[in-house]
Write a protein that binds this DNA or RNA. Structure first.
Length: 717
RNA sequence: GCCGGGAUGGCGGAAUUGGUAGACGCAGCGGACUCAAAAUCCGCCGGUGGCGACACCGUGGGGGUUCGAGUCCCCCUCCCGGCACCA
């Protein structure tokens, strides 16, 4: 994996996921059975953008190059060169990336990240700037925080030369510029970028309009959203009049001719830092030797085992404080050396555990041939919170294993179902020491007090607890629900039915156990109905043959039609994983069977036997225990798992007459019954003749008639 | 802030492609059975007006497209998930 893991700066190890950015993006198209929302999130996360990478020249006068501080290391792709005192003035290139090269003539300042070499350089002779840079570096690196912080900046006193105008432009340090994206430097075009506009207003920098959109009038007083739209160049010299595409092409060509840049594709995706300063996780198998450098732990010493006798004290990485773990011999020279104490992000393990499942007993290799039989995973199910990170890392990891010849497929998960989160109320108390203690909802009583206000107390001591609102069930908030309580009281099948019936799995759900009674009631009804049916039946008569098509009783035919209609819908719902309506279909079928007319003959028996057989098979995936038992007890077969999935009988679905809703001007005004094969003209005349309808037509001429076969007639007057 | 998703009766939810809004269930109300209760069974159950027939309103808010919008388009509000060291 040497080519795939890269060590950067001092403590971080990275996976080079960016090397697969394009393939990971393109691969989404080969996943038709993944939810669109997950693919959209991944595509945006990878964030492929087309733009221009180009450079501003700068020369640093010798008097700005001072001190004995060693030059900063060049950042990734950054053009800043180290200073060498005593040589002629510094020459360097400040590289930037932009998706809006058409606005290049509107550049009025430059902004670099606090970590940028140019910032470090300027800070050496400017303590105020050094303090600002420190402040920026201390701030959060989380994107969500960066996006909401106040945009601040400070000038460096360094000027760079605009490659096309030759103008001098001052370089600022901005707390909103990310070193990890692009070049760690951006061009400031306040005329057409909202963030730059605010920055320029705040620090009194010039704002220039260089894009015109349909001749709208431009003012530097306030930002207008259209300022960021594509348009045509103005106030841009030779580029005036060019539209976005032509301006970008021309400007990129000009920069290229100057040797100062060209078009470039950039990804938002960053490499994956896997170092963690934690005890749990896989140790990174590297030994640091003063003489030999960083040496991989030899195969015969793997795996590096975590010590099992240390007690974390809550500060720092406990491994680093365990000499028995750290101190070791260099595998190359045998001299004393230090073992790496960083462990891997747990996402590393979760990226391939499912592959290892196929050959968990394989002790001589990572995987073996059995992987080819079992993988890729046909149906993966996981929470929507994994839409990006886990699922993207797994797709990356699979490709790495493929390129190493370990697996023969690109994508780990063929079909994906992402559950919505289950939410529950959070209860807590602040302890004397100021920490927060969370209490499980099962241990809390919620009652209405005498004044009607809600009173929440801990059952153990009767004292109040506070509510922290509704949130995702989590270990840290202790607001999960153990289904065991439901299982103890109602049985596992009732617990399953209740949960499947509550909502479709992809949807967010606020937990409540009200309604579990209904699930229990339904299963009892099913049980009793099945046993009554069995007792009434002649011994040994319960086949699952379809009833004779000539079911004479029209009421029985209606029952059968209802059952097959419900089955048709449930069959579709099953394919789209809408299990709550499959459960509902089972209830509808039982309702229909209970309503079946009490005519005691073979036809009735056949309809009930068929309907019950359909019901049991529909319900078996949801409540396997009771369905398996009844299937066998009623003589349908030995094992419901081997039974075929029920199919609707097209014959049963045919009705002689259909009911059509009649609308006047789109409002429901009545309904009519027409023969199943009635012509459009016949339907129209029946509809117009309907009493309720006539009232609303009230003699007005009918301008238009819309007939939706099998559904409705709409008369437009 | 950015990306993705959501909002429908007292509650969970249904309505595949625009075509009867509220299926199915919970809770509630009324009734049967019972000495009584539980269990079970039957009926009612979006809002307003009306004795009623019925009418009008109604799918987070505002606008639009359409014969017809919960569904499509534009704008807005609130809620949930993710934002790279919780995993």
């Amino acid at each position: 994996t040497g080519a795939l893991v890269e060590k950067r700066e001092i403590p971080m190890y990275y996976m080079k996921i960016t090397a697969y950015a394009d393939e990971l993006l393109a691969g989404l198209e080969a996943l038709p059975d993944w939810p669109e929302r997950v693919k959209a999130m991944q595509a945006n996360w990878i964030g492929k953008s087309f733009g221009v990478r180009f450079a501003f020249r700068y020369e640093l006068p010798a008097d700005q190059v001072g001190g004995s501080t060693p030059p900063p290391p060049a950042g990734r792709g950054a053009g800043g060169e180290g200073s060498v005192p005593g040589t002629p003035p510094e020459k360097g290139l400040l590289w930037v990336f932009t998706t809006r090269a058409d606005t290049i003539m509107g550049v009025t300042f430059m902004a670099v990240a606090a970590e940028h070499p140019l910032a470090a350089h300027a800070a050496r002779s400017n303590p105020q700037l050094a303090a600002f840079i420190d402040e920026c570096k201390r701030g959060s690196v989380m994107e969500a925080d960066l996006a909401t912080i106040e945009k601040k900046g400070m000038p460096t006193g360094i000027f760079v030369t605009h490659p096309l105008t030759g103008d001098k432009v001052e370089v600022w340090v901005g707390n909103y510029v990310l070193m990890g994206y692009g070049e760690g430097a951006v061009m400031g075009v306040p005329g057409h970028d909202e963030r730059d506009f605010a920055f320029a207003k705040k620090y009194g920098l010039p704002i220039r309009q260089v894009i015109d959109v349909n001749g709208q009038s431009y003012s530097t007083d306030a930002w207008q959203p259209w300022y960021a739209d594509h348009g045509s160049c103005v106030n841009s010299g030779k580029y005036d009049g060019l539209d976005y595409d032509r301006a970008v092409d021309t400007i990129a060509a000009d920069l290229n001719a100057l040797g100062l840049g060209d078009k470039q594709v950039l990804y938002r995706l960053r490499d994956w830092g896997i170092s963690r300063q934690r005890y749990w996780g896989c140790p990174i198998p590297i030994i640091h030797c003063d003489g030999c450098g960083d040496v991989p732990v030899p195969d015969d010493q793997l795996p590096v085992a975590l010590p099992e006798d240390l007690v974390p004290d809550g500060s720092g990485n406990p491994l680093a404080k365990t000499p028995a773990f750290v101190e070791c011999a260099c595998p190359k020279c045998g001299k004393p050396a230090r073992r790496e104490t960083d462990t891997m992000d747990t996402f590393v393990d979760s990226s391939w555990y499912y592959i290892r499942y196929a050959c968990a007993d394989q002790n001589d290799a990572m995987v073996d041939k059995r992987v080819g039989y079992w993988l890729p995973v046909d149906q993966y199910i996981g929470g929507i919170e994994h839409a990006i990170l886990h699922l993207l890392y797994s797709r990356f990891w699979t490709r790495v294993m493929r390129d190493l010849g370990l697996v023969g497929f690109d994508e780990p998960f063929t079909r994906l179902l992402t559950q919505g989160m289950v939410l529950n109320e959070i209860f807590f108390r602040k302890t004397d020491s100021g920490r927060i203690a969370y209490f499980n909802p099962a241990d809390v009583d919620v009652k209405a007090g005498d004044d009607g206000a809600r009173r929440v107390t801990l059952r153990a001591d009767g004292q109040p607890v506070e509510s922290g609102g509704i949130g995702t069930m989590s270990k840290s908030k202790n607001n999960g629900v153990d289904p065991q309580a439901l299982i103890d009281e109602y049985g596992a099948d009732t617990a399953r039915l209740f949960m499947m019936f509550a909502s479709p799995p992809e949807q967010t759900l606020e937990w409540s156990d009200s309604g579990v009674e209904g699930a229990s009631r339904f299963l009892k009804r099913l049980w009793h109905f099945a046993h009554e049916f069995k007792e009434a039946a002649d011994a040994g008569g319960n086949g699952q043959d379809a009833p004779a098509a000539s079911t004479a009783d029209p009421q029985l035919s209606e029952v059968r039609r209802e059952i097959h209609k419900v089955l048709q819908q449930a069959d579709y719902d099953m394919t789209r994983h809408q299990f709550n309506t499959v459960a509902s279909a089972a209830m509808k079928i039982l309702n229909a069977l209970e309503r079946a007319p009490q005519v005691s003959d073979h036809a009735r028996h056949a309809v009930l036997a068929e309907g019950l057989g359909i019901l049991l098979r529909l319900l078996a995936p949801i409540t396997p225990h009771i369905c398996h038992h009844l299937w066998r007890e009623l003589g349908y077969g030995e094992d419901i798992l081997t039974a075929a999935w029920p199919q609707p009988d097209p014959q049963a679905l045919v009705a002689d007459e259909v009911e059509l809703v009649v609308q006047v001007n789109g409002k429901r005004r009545g309904s009519i019954r027409v023969p199943q094969d009635a012509s459009r003209a016949a339907i129209e005349s029946i509809a117009v003749a309907d009493g309720a309808v006539r009232k609303f037509v009230a003699g007005q001429p009918v301008k238009k008639v819309v007939v939706v076969p099998g559904r409705l007639v709409n008369l437009v007057v």
